[in-house]
Design a protein around this nucleic acid. Structure first.
Lengths: 221, 221
DNA sequence: TATAAAATTTTTTTTTGTCTAAAAATTTAA
DNA sequence: TTAAATTTTTAGACAAAAAAAAATTTTATA
């Protein structure tokens, strides 16, 4: 795993949080969150895109790649473990831990964090009740996300669609996809963002990036 | 207390360590320790001098001011406390702790370090046996240093002189200073680096910077 | 299609820390 | 005490990172 600058880490983390709300993140939304100018965002997006940490289509926004998401989860893991440590062991108030964890989260030793996790007894939640990713970046429990963001070869279930248009529903029914359909992603194609999915018990099918952005799935971890 | 950059902190820390060996630190000595060029040292010395963290006389070297020493001791305190934490609580080997502490030592919250100290039971030594400064920057035990560096209003005792010349000894005897003389510094004058000292039980006297650089003292803390 | 909104490009600025080469000061040794 | 060697400083420049303003381009929308 590569090393990132503090600034890069803050960008990754913030994009991750924004993605929990909306499929794709826009330049302006990120600029506002980070208290910076849209132009600075564009600069950084080019940089992170070059490092393959996110998918970036100029004028359309961006979303984390698998590597980017993994990196973001590691940063969030560090942050929340330190928060837990500060509250549980050092008796800081729950409202004081965030600021200090913002600094500690950038200390990059993987072994340090894994040992800290063990020392703390593998806590599942931080003092604010947010889940702490494990050493592989997994968050326990049900994960809800866009099909677009589903990791490869991970069994998942369709739980919602982001668009109710007739055209979308027609496409879905043609492909035999509906609420509750079980599927997994076999392969992604970087060229156009399309993917090949296997639908439980039956056929293999191709899904465009556009469609994958409108299907929500859940999976157990 | 101000905040320093990682680089500034590394300079301060290194100067402190070098000062344990020789009164004043030279540009080249510091450059070698920090694996950098002498010109870079000069640049940083100007910066630290402007912040009043050290006394700097071009071509003659530099030594930490009271503020600079205080800052250095705080950094060393953080470093050693984290080392203790890593070895004692997280079960790192004594040979692994240094590298990680180099990162952790730059996390600047004072409250964090004081709470960590308390949590660890105020350990007096790190895993390598080096003493850990307390929250006021004091190192327990006997301190030996140049009169030049002695904190204000701290009772101390002359334990050695750095120069055996007749001229020096003449000056010392004239001022009634010898081995074992008890004294403390009443006031320093930034203009010429001279100081006013009170010699135990008797008179007040003025000492030049040049002389203060050649008298070693010890004091209890 | 015209216009507004959003995003990008281009060009600057600032900050921080570093380096090279040359000049200056100091130390040393003849 | 002068000359040579060493050390330190100056001056100028660079590079990376982050941010910003202004101008331009693209997209969305009415």
């Amino acid at each position: 795993m590569l090393n990132f600058s503090n600034s890069e880490e803050n960008y990754l983390k913030t994009i991750y949080h924004l993605q929990l709300e909306s499929e794709t993140v826009s330049t302006n939304a990120l600029a506002e969150k980070l208290n910076t100018r849209p132009a600075s965002i564009t600069d950084m997006m080019k940089k992170l895109n070059a490092k393959k940490l996110l998918h970036y289509k100029p004028y359309y926004g961006f979303y984390l790649s698998n590597d980017g998401k993994k990196a973001a989860l590691m940063i969030i893991r560090r942050h929340r473990l330190w928060e837990f440590f500060l509250a549980e062991k050092l008796k800081f108030g729950w409202d004081e831990v965030h600021v200090i964890a913002e600094e500690l989260e950038h200390v990059s030793s993987k072994k340090l964090i894994d040992k800290l996790d063990e020392y703390l007894g593998f806590p599942p939640f931080d003092p604010h009740g947010d889940p702490i990713p494990d050493s592989k970046g997994k968050i326990r429990g049900m994960n809800k996300m866009l099909l677009l963001q589903l990791p490869l070869k991970t069994p998942a279930k369709v739980c919602a669609v982001g668009n109710q248009s007739d055209e979308m529903l027609e496409l879905l029914s043609h492909k035999n996809i509906g609420l509750g359909t079980k599927l997994e992603i076999k392969k992604r194609f970087d060229f156009d963002g399309s993917m090949e999915i296997k639908i439980k018990g039956t056929q293999v099918s191709n899904i465009s990036e556009q469609l994958a952005k409108n299907i929500f799935v859940t999976y157990e971890s």
